[in-house]
Design a protein around this nucleic acid. Structure first.
Lengths: 117, 117
DNA sequence: ATCTCAGATCGACGTCTGTCGATATGATAC
DNA sequence: GTATCATATCGACAGACGTCGATCTGAGAT
């Protein structure tokens, strides 16, 4: 279906504010795509484990999370495509780091529109 | 499948912090369930429209969002079950409000573990 | 009680998703 | 070059999901 997936960056910093009544159909699509990337327990645990130590090697995840190597690779791809992880090749190993700006962008969409208090 | 769905409250305020390396398998399930409820453009637009005016009548949503009445009812149910909306019956109409504490709980899970700066 | 109408539930459909075994790719070591 | 090993891709499968037409439920109104 997807003819040429951008497997790396996804420089779109989606995420219009969710609660202020300005969310258009297309923006909702983009935001929903971000949430979809977060809507799986294995992917959340990948983010969690990687963020905890700053970075993580793909080689450790199948044993740590109890999923096969293809399954882990599949989930890592989804997180990278969503812009939530960045991938770096070191020798024959693949290392991943969390892209916190993208995570913050998702968080901002949930923030209520009450700028003053 | 689900034999008796709690269609109202869901007092679980899920959402352990995502980035600090303490996410257990079961907590990841709960958090993923919250993100799953947010991972659909129609549901995001429902939240958006309802939050914008403080409340919203189910009767307006099919026309506003271009989906059938059963489909809207389906999505509203998912948001109520996730604890993100609360439902109130007024005469024959159903009105909905956003439960901001629950939304904030999801947001807190995304916050990076840097309490001091 | 009967009528009307808003909303929920049911049943079906096509599509998407998570999973894994098998295989391909690509990088290092020899 | 070949061998080895880490990761990606492929193919298949079962289950979940979004959608809608048809129907049921329940609250007013008469």
């Amino acid at each position: 279906m997807v003819e040429a997936i951008n497997h790396s960056t996804t420089e779109v910093v989606c995420c219009e504010p969710l609660l202020d009544g300005t969310l258009l159909a297309e923006e909702a699509e983009q935001l929903a795509a971000m949430f979809k990337a977060l809507a799986d327990p294995i992917r959340l645990r990948l983010l969690n484990v990687i963020a905890a130590s700053g970075e993580g090697c793909a080689c450790d995840f199948p044993a740590a999370l109890g999923r096969s190597q293809p399954t882990i690779s599949h989930h890592l791809r989804i997180l990278v495509d969503a812009g939530l992880l960045e991938r770096e090749q070191r020798g024959k190993w693949a290392w991943f780091r969390v892209r916190e700006p993208q995570l913050n962008a998702v968080m901002d969409a949930l923030r209520p529109p009450t700028p003053v208090r």
